[in-house]
């Protein structure tokens, strides 16, 4: 598998083919905010905090860097006025779930009524359970604004011994969300 050369924030970066922009950036020591990305897991593209501006064939567009594959000659901007605007609003929508990012962008309160964000639905727990542990205890229940994380009742006892996904949880309140008895 070959490598490709590209520019991230003006810095020359090489990356293996098949990697994503986010992986290439992190490897090169360039930080892009992210929440649903976890190295061991398949790209998921849900939190949209890792949006970057990509210029290819003279066309610039905003993409999720965790899902966009690296390409030869790609030019990537990880910060701009437009990107800051997107990220700030996302942080506000997730409030108070991303405290470090809130601090970084100078957000001290949300203009929205965030009464449901004890979980960002990043799905790291669900995906960890399925992709790494192959237990498939957790799942996404419902759709749209009613989507939530739930545990298969018949299998929830598995969690007693595992609990590996807990450390990956952003909100820390996932257990309550999953309806687990001991949470």
């Amino acid at each position: 598998m070959g490598t490709v050369a590209m520019k991230i924030d003006g810095k020359n970066v090489t990356a293996d083919e098949g990697k994503t922009i986010l992986q290439a950036a992190l490897a090169a020591g360039i930080d892009i905010p992210h929440m649903c990305y976890l190295e061991q897991l398949e790209p998921y593209g849900a939190c949209r905090l890792c949006m970057v501006e990509v210029t290819a064939n003279k066309r610039t567009r905003m993409v999720a860097s965790c899902a966009y594959p690296v390409k030869e000659g790609l030019e990537v901007k990880t910060d701009s006025e437009a990107l800051r605007k997107v990220r700030k609003l996302l942080v506000e929508l997730l409030w108070p779930l991303a405290p470090e990012l809130a601090e970084k962008y100078g957000i001290t309160a949300s203009r929205f009524s965030n009464d449901h964000t004890d979980c960002s639905m990043c799905g790291k727990c669900v995906r960890y359970c399925s992709e790494i542990k192959k237990k498939e205890v957790l799942y996404f229940k419902g759709r749209g604004i009613e989507r939530e994380i739930a545990a298969v009742p018949e299998l929830v006892s598995e969690c007693v011994y595992c609990q590996e996904c807990f450390k990956e949880c952003n909100g820390g309140l996932i257990l309550k969300q999953a309806g687990m008895p001991w949470a």
């Binding site: 399925s130 498939e136 957790l138 799942y139 229940k141 739930a150 298969v152 018949e154 299998l155």
Partner: peptide, 12 residues
């Protein structure tokens, strides 16, 4: 097929 997958679909 895992119960998790079946539940996801049934609730979706």
């Amino acid at each position: 097929v895992s119960l998790a997958e079946i539940n996801t679909i049934a609730h979706f």
